[in-house]
Computed example of a mutant assay.
Amino acid sequence: MRVYLPCTLPSLARVAGAGEVGPAPLTGYAVTPALVEWYVSGDTEELEYVALTDAARASLRMLAADRADGVEVAARRVVVAAEVPDDVVAAGPDLEERSRVRVPVVVRMNQIAAVHVDDLGAVPDVEAAIAAVFAADAGDDDARFVVDGVEDHELMWFATQEIPDLLT
């Protein structure tokens, strides 16, 4: 099963150094039965895009949390796409994020298929979304508009061999 794991650039550096995404359990996003039922008419590619977008939103929350803790982190959403055995992944009952899953094991580097990262051109909109994401989660419609706007930026695809280049 393709699982999308939200990340940040500093977290990606730790993944590269450790050779795995962890510690477990991990929160990820995938095509779940609840997502398929909710989306009704989408094909697998469309459903995976929804899961990727949900993971990118979670990455945005990670960036905002890091900033709130005083951590300097680049305003670029990061999502790690990994192949995880279906029988390991557990879908949650979260109706708000129908694609949310729990991965009770670490994900090794050889399971990572790709990394998705914002282009530098997205940074101003990501900055604005970082400032607005918690208000958006609390129901502020203006903040939600700002956060939704960052989704106009497509995440770029990188092979695992390109991770060192992303981190320099």
Rank of each mutant, 00 (worst) to 15 (best):
L5W: 05
P6G: 14
C7I: 01
C7L: 04
P10V: 00
L12M: 11
L12Y: 09
V15A: 15
A16M: 08
A16N: 12
G17T: 04
A18Q: 13
G19N: 07
V21A: 14
A24E: 11
A24M: 00
A24D: 03
P25W: 02
L26A: 08
T27Q: 10
G28R: 00
Y29S: 01
A30T: 10
P33T: 04
V36D: 02
W38E: 15
T44F: 03
T44W: 02
E46W: 08
E46R: 08
E48N: 13
Y49Q: 12
V50R: 04
V50Y: 01
A51W: 03
A51M: 07
T53L: 09
A55D: 10
A55Q: 03
R61E: 15
M62W: 06
L63C: 00
A64I: 04
R67K: 14
A68K: 12
V71S: 07
E72S: 14
V73I: 10
A75R: 00
A75E: 10
R76M: 11
V79H: 09
E83S: 09
E83G: 08
E83W: 01
E83N: 11
V84K: 00
V84Q: 09
D87L: 11
A91N: 01
A91C: 08
G92Q: 04
D94C: 07
E97V: 14
R102A: 10
R102Y: 01
V106S: 15
V107S: 07
N110L: 03
N110D: 15
A113M: 04
V115M: 03
H116P: 07
D119K: 00
G121D: 14
V126P: 07
A128H: 07
I130M: 15
I130N: 02
I130T: 09
A131Y: 03
A132E: 11
A135H: 05
D137W: 00
R144C: 04
V146A: 09
V146S: 11
V147R: 09
V147D: 03
V150Q: 13
H153A: 14
L155F: 03
L155S: 12
M156L: 15
W157T: 12
D165F: 14
D165K: 08
D165V: 08
L166K: 09
L167R: 06
T168E: 12
